[in-house]
Computed example of a mutant assay.
Amino acid sequence: MAVQISPSILSADFARLADEAAAVAGAADWLHVDVMDNHFVPNLTLGLPIVEALLKATSLPLDCHLMIEQPERWAPQYAEAGAESVTIHAEAARAPVRTLRAIRSAGARAGLALNPATGVEPYEDLLPEIDMLLLMTVEPGFGGQRFLDIVLPKIRRARRLIGDRGVWLQVDGGVSAETIERCAEAGADVFVAGNAVYGADDPAQAVQNLRAQAERATAAS
């Protein structure tokens, strides 16, 4: 599958979100929005009103990652608002199949996220219900964390389980010039990058550089 880069606005300047989105609009495939509720994860970030505002301010499709409790209550609203991809956490979902189907019914791609310690094999039966599997490569809750190499074998196992189903395999956390090639070699094809993009002098060029690295690693694997 083609490499896709989704810069995370968690690492952007919150006072200039429209400008920060515009800075990567010509280079990125998605804009990744981390929604945190200070319950499922120990941090409070963006919510539905910010997503609605961003949808008016950028042409990039929004990739909403809901790190929240009760995703069955909120996830469909993000899809209805216009987010093109909405991901819920397996650890928080009480009714994952119903919620994933509600996301799709509202017109968005449905994603399922797994924390580093959550095995991928128990969720193999849910693969027909999703468009993307997100593997966290840090503990969720904060940007700028160090990449966890222990997730690399899980990425490989997930790629084997996905096979030819057409499900995207996203990684999120500590993705940078030092780690993206290992993720691509293991089988990931969608890469969330925060500090590696918004900490650079030229965010668009940083996206292009990361894409080139991932494409080289994918071709060589």
Rank of each mutant, 00 (worst) to 15 (best):
H39T: 01
A93I: 06
I88N: 01
A92V: 03
M1E: 08
D19W: 03
K154Y: 02
L62G: 04
S176M: 07
D125V: 08
P153T: 09
T137H: 07
R165M: 13
P42D: 10
L135M: 14
P7Y: 13
A193L: 11
E52L: 05
D202R: 12
D131N: 12
R16M: 09
N38E: 13
V207W: 05
V3Q: 08
A22G: 11
F40G: 02
A12K: 09
R101S: 03
D29K: 12
Q77C: 02
A18G: 11
L55F: 12
D125E: 13
E72D: 14
F14V: 09
I88S: 01
T179R: 06
R16Q: 15
V207L: 11
D189V: 11
V35G: 01
Y123V: 02
L152C: 02
W168P: 00
I50Q: 12
D189W: 10
T87E: 02
I9Q: 07
I9D: 05
A110V: 05
R146H: 11
E72Y: 00
G143Y: 11
P203D: 10
V175T: 12
R16N: 14
A212R: 15
D201F: 00
R159W: 10
I103W: 04
E185K: 14
N115I: 07
G163I: 13
P7S: 11
L66Y: 03
A206M: 08
R94A: 14
M132F: 02
V35I: 15
V41R: 02
D37G: 04
E124G: 06
P61F: 12
L133Y: 10
A90S: 11
E178Q: 15
S85H: 14
A28K: 12
E121I: 00
M132H: 04
P61Q: 11
D19E: 15
E181M: 12
S8M: 10
F40Q: 02
G166F: 07
N38S: 14
L152R: 08
E185N: 00
M36S: 07
A22P: 01
E215M: 12
L54M: 14
W74R: 03
I9C: 06
M132K: 12
L169P: 08
F191Q: 09
A92I: 02
L31R: 08
Y198S: 05
I9A: 06
M136W: 04
L10P: 07
F14D: 04
A92K: 01
D189K: 05
E181A: 15
M1D: 09
R165P: 00
